[in-house]
Design a protein around this nucleic acid. Structure first.
Length: 110
DNA sequence: ATAATGACTCCCC
DNA sequence: GGGGGAGCCATTA
């Protein structure tokens, strides 16, 4: 790695860090904010490396349906859900309740 | 450079 | 409404 390749990750981390407390965002929204709307999948890949950054709230990032698709990548089983609930985000069956209300779009809020 | 993988998304049946 | 297949992009082997 090394190189500017990490720059893409940095951009993803930067956006994720901007997600306010009690709010969530989607891979597509983040990818779009980065200028690569079709790189939603790549954003998820970047999140895979987000474990190295303890300041990246990956638990606030879900798929477009508001489903905790990446919960399996967390150390615990319901860690991601508990974290969201701890922030006031209601989660049921690995899915965020009132996702539209908790949804936060970087470029719009930006 | 090619092929395979993945925390996604869209289109079709 | 639910399920299956293809597309896109970045990383790794």
């Amino acid at each position: 790695m090394a190189k500017d390749s990490t720059d893409f990750f940095e951009k993803v981390y930067d956006v994720v860090r901007q997600i306010p407390y009690g709010r969530v965002s989607t891979y597509g929204a983040i990818a779009k904010a980065l200028g690569a709307a079709k790189s939603a999948r790549t954003v998820g890949y970047a999140m895979n490396a987000s474990h190295a950054k303890d300041d990246v709230p990956a638990h606030r990032v879900v798929n477009r349906n508001g489903v905790l698709t990446g919960k399996h990548h967390f150390p615990g089983t319901h860690v991601m859900q508990q974290m969201l609930e701890a922030e006031g985000v209601e989660v049921v069956d690995d899915q965020i309740v009132d996702f539209d209300k908790h949804l936060w779009i970087p470029e719009v809020q930006e």
